[in-house]
Structure formats: structure tokens, C-alpha cells
Design a protein around this nucleic acid. Structure first.
Lengths: 187, 187
DNA sequence: CTCGTTATATAACATATGTTATCATATATT
DNA sequence: AATATATGATAACATATGTTATATAACGAG
């Protein structure tokens, strides 16, 4: 009995996502979305109870984008690829990276959480490459993550500019040096 | 002939600075300052042409706070102390650190700039400790800074919690391992 | 003491933004 | 074809915030 929908929930979220991706949540508001949708604000409040709810939906979509990066499978070792993916996400989507990992309101970088089962798995797989004990590998993993996060943050704020091959070289060299240096020191 | 001032420029800036320090620029507005000043908004607009100008003044004060940290002299080697100060600033003033170094609108971390004369000086002094060539030391310095920045960002977002002694141990160990690993690799 | 200058309070205006009331209308069901 | 109802446009309301117009009053110069 009602007229057909001219604007769907998905369309609205997609437009909101694009705005946030380029300008952050600060510039997201009902009238701005309506304008880019060529509509009034009504479709927004028909599909969402509030802007708050819409923002939460956009946030989830941002997290999905991040997860897609982290699930990437390549010919590179998984351990290395996960760091590269984290950095690549920061480089490709600086605003989204800042939203997810450079504000305290949000969850911590899950690659850093080593207390869950997935974290344990990462440590164990790392051990096979380094030959370190579980505790040693855990510490090593933290250091590698801090370095990775450092690069990602610098790219997200556009403080530095690095090409993909430079990133891989920098990360690989550093990890190897850290490992070698640690083993050397143990003697 | 005019009545005495009840509210000075400095008082206003100090209150604004405190608000920003704890809640960021997002929560800084004229009425909020006026309230904490127990005044109307008039003293603000008498002393500043606009909120924009006041914000710029607060920004300068933030930068001064940062500089005070970086100028600290201790019994530790200057090279090491500068990294520790950078991190300590992030730990003590997370919101201010984010304003200065985790947004792209602002200047890049100057500790990272190695093209000015002060940067060159840092490299040279580092060389005396490591024995590396100028170009090698430059690369080493970048790696150390990335790691330092990584720790600082994680502390500023409260993703990790570290005590001063843990920070120093982590940074020192990592730098030594990086150096040893690099030298080892050169062979 | 009187007066002119200016600091301050009050209140208003302008704009931005979330939200909603009201009304018109398209369309599936009857 | 008539109707009930969800969809959407328009416009309004509420609030937040920057900014300013106006009035008041304090205080030093005369």
C-alpha cells in the first residue's frame, strides 16, 4: 500500500561512509547526507532512529573495511602480511585508521591483543620462524607491533610518505635486525 | 578612566588550555570558558577578536608545554632522553600529544625532521655512540623514531599502560637490539 | 565631583545541526 | 476504483555556539 522506497538504508549508509572516509565523523550531518542523496532529511530518520544509530552503522562498516584488509592472503608469510596489511590500511584509508586506532574511545588494535586464542596462535606461528620461547616471542611480537603501529600512524597523519616497496623493506629489515640483535644479546 | 580589568588575557587562555588539555578542542567554546571564569562571554571577545584567535593562542601554549618536555636535561644521554621525553609527554598529556602529533592539520613531529641543522646535529651525536656512517645513522635514527612514536601513540590513546621504568627498558633494549642486529647484518 | 573611556553583563541575532510535526502522494490490497 | 499506509518534502522547533548591540558601571583625569 505504501509508495516504493526511493532511498534505501544501504544507500544512506554508503553516502555517510564516503563522507566519513574523506572527512571524518566531524563533517557528517543529516543535511549533508540528504544533499548528496538529493533528498530531504526524512529518508534518513525513516531508516534510522537517530544520527547516533546511523553513525554506529557507519562505524561497523569501517571496521569491516579494516577486516577485509587483515584477511588478505598473499604469497607472503602470514606473519609479515598482517603487518603490511595493517600499514596498507592506514595508507589507503588514513581517516578510517585514525577513527579505529588513534582515538581512545574505540577498541584497541586487536593485532596487539595477545590474550585471546587468535593472539596465542599468532605467537605460536611466530615461534616457528624465530625459534624463540613463547614468552620471548610474545615480547618480540609486541616490539614488532609497536614499530608497525608507528609506521601506520605516521602514514595516517601523512607525516611521512612511503611507497609499498619502501614499507616492506623497512618493516622486513627492522624485524630481522630486531631478531638478530635479540639473539645476539642472549649469548 | 576605564574600570579595572577583572579578567585578563592570561586567565582566559589558562582556563581554555585546561579545558583542551582534558577534553580536547571539541569541547572548547565561549560559554564554557565564561562559566569557568564566572563571567559572561564578553571578556573573551574583548581580549580576542574571535574564538579562532583564542584557539591559536592555546595551540601555541600546548606547543610550549611540549617544548618544555623536550628541553629537559637529565643525567641520561641526550639521545636517549629525547625519546623518553617525547614518550613522557604523550603519557602525561595524551590529549595534547594527539593534538600535536596525531592529526594531519598540524606540523610533523619535529624530532623526525632530519633536514634542518638541529636534525643534523642529532645524527652526528648519534654517530659518536653507534659508530655508523652519516647515512647509516640517519636510517637508524628513523627506525628509532618510528618505534618511539609508536609507543607514544599507544600511550596517548591509552591502548597500553606502561610505567616509566618499563618504558625506559623497552626503548633501551629495542634500540640496542636494532643496532646490534644492524651491525651483525652488515658483516 | 564630574565626565569620558572601556570592561562587563544581558540579551539578542545568526547559523548549524538533530529531530519532528504536518501534509501530500504513490501503490498494494480490497 | 477506493483506500489505508508508509514514504518523502517542507517547514518548523530545540539546542548549541559564535558573535554583537546595548546598557551599566567603575575609575582616573580634569
Amino acid at each position: 500500500m505504501p509508495p516504493n522506497k526511493k532511498y534505501t538504508k544501504d544507500e544512506i549508509v554508503n553516502i555517510a561512509y564516503k563522507i566519513v572516509e574523506s572527512e571524518g565523523f566531524e563533517n557528517l550531518n543529516a543535511r549533508r547526507i540528504a544533499k548528496e542523496l538529493n533528498a530531504s532529511v526524512q529518508p534518513i530518520f525513516h531508516n534510522f532512529t537517530s544520527m547516533e544509530e546511523l553513525k554506529n552503522t557507519v562505524y561497523e562498516k569501517i571496521y569491516e573495511t579494516y577486516q577485509n584488509y587483515m584477511e588478505r592472503v598473499t604469497e607472503k608469510p602470514a606473519y609479515k602480511q598482517s603487518g603490511l596489511s595493517y600499514i596498507q590500511f592506514a595508507k589507503d584509508h588514513p581517516v578510517l585508521f585514525k577513527i579505529l586506532f588513534m582515538k581512545e574511545t574505540n577498541n584497541s588494535p586487536e593485532s596487539f591483543i595477545i590474550n585471546d586464542s587468535e593472539g596465542e596462535d599468532i605467537i605460536r606461528r611466530g615461534q616457528q620462524l624465530t625459534g624463540l620461547s613463547y614468552e620471548e616471542q610474545k615480547k618480540f611480537h609486541v616490539k614488532v607491533f609497536i614499530f608497525t603501529h608507528g609506521i601506520a600512524c605516521l602514514l595516517a597523519t601523512k607525516t611521512v610518505k612511503l611507497e609499498e616497496n619502501e614499507i616492506e623493506e623497512l618493516l622486513t629489515n627492522t624485524v630481522l635486525e630486531l631478531l638478530k640483535g635479540y639473539k645476539e644479546e642472549r649469548l
